[in-house]
């Protein structure tokens, strides 16, 4: 177990966590402002990835692909909000779960219809591929480093948007008291559409960015969606800070657990058993983390105390 491997895995975990943050931020924003649980957030991630793969295949430009992912997911998000989601705000959580589950079915099968069942591939552009040498002589893929930097920049931008701008003030006011901000003359339904489109756009970008290191296929959004749920449960629903810390915690636990748990078990038992038990445990590690945090703090690390 060398130092280099440790640094590499920590960076991988960080990269995974930052991408999860992009998903979780949208989810937690939508829940915080509109009180909506949106299972279809994974579909928006998938739509972003498909839009990026299609545009990259057509134009060959990675920048255009990212722009297309953002635009496609945000536009689809806005349309879905106007047609369906809007009718769900005053319904109970069960209805929200089912309606957004129905949306997943429609989006997944619709995408399969359009693009077929085979995965698409989104290539990393030349200027971002290849390894980069970090201080200390560690080789690390440039693209993954790029993901960390871009993700952190988006997180900072989002933080600035929410704390510094007028829209941000309206969003925070909407979280606290939606009747009052409507009474103050702010068009609440426009704000809701905007927040939903913002969350959708973040998911779309995440889908496109991750799509370049994994395959772009139907159903790619749901595993990420569920991890994003774990993130906001850990961080506390509605808390942006919680989403960031939760995401990094989950990313690190998942990545490091997969590497180090089997190694750790090898100290106690024979290698074959250690590998099999270790990998089983590692696949459960983030859920064990979630369970432990919930026992300690039932509303998450930064959630409002009830």
């Amino acid at each position: 177990m060398s130092f280099i491997l440790l640094v590499e895995q920590v960076l991988n975990g960080l990269q995974f966590g930052i991408m999860l943050f992009l998903m979780a931020a949208g989810l937690t924003l939508i829940f915080g402002v509109m009180g909506l649980i949106n299972l279809a957030h994974g579909s928006l991630y998938m739509i972003g990835a498909f839009a990026a793969a299609a545009v990259a295949g057509y134009t060959g430009s990675f920048v255009l692909a990212l722009a297309a992912a953002l635009a496609a997911a945000a536009i689809v998000g806005a349309i879905v909000e106007l047609v369906v989601i809007r009718r769900l705000y005053d319904k109970d959580h069960l209805d929200q779960v089912l309606a957004t589950f129905a949306l997943i079915l429609i989006f997944s099968e619709g995408t399969r219809w359009l693009f077929g069942s085979f995965p698409l591939f989104l290539d990393i552009p030349d200027y971002l591929s290849g390894p980069v040498t970090l201080p200390g002589g560690i080789q690390y893929p440039l693209y993954r480093l790029f993901l960390i930097v871009v993700g952190l920049l988006i997180a900072i931008g989002l933080g600035a948007l929410i704390t510094k701008t007028r829209i941000g003030i309206q969003i925070r006011a909407g979280e606290n008291d939606r009747e009052m901000i409507a009474a103050l003359g702010i068009d609440i339904s426009r704000l809701y559409t905007l927040v939903f489109a913002l969350g959708a756009g973040l998911a779309g970008i995440a889908g496109a960015l991750v799509g370049a290191i994994q395959s772009v296929q139907v159903g790619m959004g749901e595993p990420v969606l569920i991890l994003a749920f774990v993130v906001i449960v850990i961080g506390g629903i509605g808390s942006m800070k919680g989403a960031l810390i939760g995401a990094i915690l989950v990313g690190l636990t998942d990545t490091l657990g997969g590497i180090f748990l089997p190694e750790l078990l090898k100290l106690f038992t024979d290698p074959a058993t250690a590998t099999s038990i270790g990998s089983s445990l590692a696949s459960m590690a983030i859920y064990i983390l979630m369970g432990a945090i919930l026992i300690w703090r039932p509303t998450g690390l930064f959630g409002a105390r009830s």
Binding site: F229, I232, V233, S279, L294, I295, G300
Partner: peptide, 28 residues
């Protein structure tokens, strides 16, 4: 464990426990 919470948390936690068993069965 899940009933320490309620509402949306409950939905998400039961979903997460489902995934935990799913991944466990895959790696078993």
């Amino acid at each position: 464990l899940s009933m320490r919470t309620s509402g949306v948390y409950f939905i998400m936690i039961t979903l997460a426990f489902g995934q935990m068993f799913f991944f466990f069965s895959i790696s078993w």
